[in-house]
Amino acid sequence: AEIIDGPKVNWNFAVWGKRRAFTEGMEYAAEQVKERTGGKFTITMGYGSFSKPKETLDGVKLGATQGAMFCNFYHPGKNPAFMVFTLPFLPLGDPDVRIRVTRKLYEHPALVADMDRWNAMTYVSTILPQYEFFGRGKEPHKPEDFAGMRVRAGGGIGSAMEKLGATLSTVPATEVYTTLERGTVDAASFPYTYAHVAYKLHEIADWFTGNLSPGTSECPAVFNKDAYAALPQQYKDLLMGMRDEIYAVQKKAYADIDAKNLPMLREKLTEITYTEEQRADFQEKAGKVVWDEWVKDNPKLPGQELIDLILSEAKASM
């Protein structure tokens, strides 16, 4: 392909942790941008070296980094409208549905306003997978089975579990292995399957839920608006034209890791799967109730409108 010519620009992009499926999309973007501009436009990925995970938006606002990843549930107060993605039992299990829905939602004025405060604009979603449960002991086959269970779950999934009568236990992610092993918690939810394997939960769990799809989080990649505006048109076009490729890379990264993990998980542990009716039962008992509460608790947000938008957009893409 032809080399895109332009001025020399380097962007600092803040992520955290280690390079993993979660970061493959932006890694691809960084690599492609460099290649297609002949090294004129570069994006330096800083793994924890530019920002703390919970303060990447501050870094963008200050202009210290030109782009960053953030996760909505780290700081609900910084991004109230984005919290809609964290509601439980939304129909966002399929990655293609997810991509379509997030694209639509990113354009909604409430979400745009959230980002405006941080002088940021959304670029792509990291389409984080659904959080499934890994646990020991009694297997949860129906909503009632979660009653009395001690679970580690945050945000909307946590609220849903409370509705089902579970006790919530807040344990730092790094301590989940020990607490699950010693029986202080019975089950823990993490993005499926890569985070479970990253925290080695498969070594100590008896069972896992394969398709409960209780909910997820939204972790977008964003740019500093001024930095983006200052780019020459050809660089802007390059970035914006690459989004489908990034989503494809991101999907493949999760699929690859599932392909590697799932056979191992299925061999070692009991996979609990749910029928459509069972999932509807969960949704009935712990989904809509939590949505309604969220709408009520956030009167400043067009909460119901956002939920309806997700539902209609998801339905349209089926």
Binding site: K54, K61, Y74, H75, P76, G77, K78, G154, T170
Partner: peptide
Amino acid sequence: DHFLRAWEYGDTTIDAEFPV
């Protein structure tokens, strides 16, 4: 300024959503 951003634009803790 770091305080002011949290005050003006909102910032809360991860679980209990206490103001920061």
